[in-house]
């Protein structure tokens, strides 16, 4: 049993560490990771990697939590409850969990990259909708949406294997070791 506990602890540490790294990568503009000054949405890659094959409410909850964290990083004090990233990330987490990847999609980088692409577009569209309802200039918001959604989606999906590969390796290692312990 202590073996299982140790594996769980290591697994949680690995996942948590990756999440922390993703949060800290958000304001960084590493060479080669920018288009038009926009950076990949690392948080969303982590969320998609975590949400695949998880219960939907858990994925939504984690998405909301990550959204609030990103809010605390970005929003100036004069901003209200909206616009919030919790909405976009919550919906993306829920939708990803709903995909039930093992049934419909092959487990490879291409399909994950495609899911990430779609989720970035959904996330940015929800951001643009929030800004529209807050009464910002329609033309500006939606022309910015076009630019942001496309460049972020391309960047994020291209960079997703960098994060997704170690995370799946970690997850496979965890389930393999827990399974081995349970067998013996």
């Amino acid at each position: 049993m202590s073996q299982v506990l140790r594996c769980t602890l290591l697994y949680s540490l690995g996942m948590g560490g990756a999440l922390f790294l993703c949060l800290l990568l958000l304001p960084a503009r590493l060479p080669g990771t920018t288009i038009l000054g926009y950076a990949p949405n690392w948080l969303l890659i982590w969320l998609v990697g975590w949400s695949l094959r998880r219960p939907i409410p858990l994925a939504v909850g984690v998405g909301v939590c990550l959204g609030l964290l990103q809010d605390s990083f970005v929003l100036p004090p004069e901003a209200g409850i909206f616009p919030t990233h919790a909405l976009g990330l919550g919906v993306s987490g829920g939708l990803t969990a709903m995909l039930q990847k093992q049934r419909y999609v092959q487990e490879d980088f291409i399909s994950v990259a495609l899911i990430v692409f779609a989720m970035v577009v959904i996330c940015e569209t929800l951001n643009a909708l929030q800004r529209t309802f807050l009464g910002e200039n329609l033309v500006q918001v939606w022309s910015a949406h076009q630019r942001i959604a496309l460049s972020c989606a391309v960047l994020t999906s291209l960079w997703s294997p960098v994060l997704y590969f170690p995370l799946t390796q970690l997850r496979h290692w965890f389930y393999r070791s827990v399974h081995l312990v349970n067998k013996t």
Binding site: L23, L24, P27, L58, V62, L75
Partner: peptide, 25 residues
């Protein structure tokens, strides 16, 4: 336990956000 952890996480993140914290920065 996962749900309670996530609830705790949401609460903590909400506190960070509403407190205009520069913790992550």
């Amino acid at each position: 336990w996962q749900i309670s952890l996530i609830c705790l996480g949401i609460y903590a993140a909400f506190l960070l956000r509403q407190g205009h914290s520069m913790l992550l920065g």
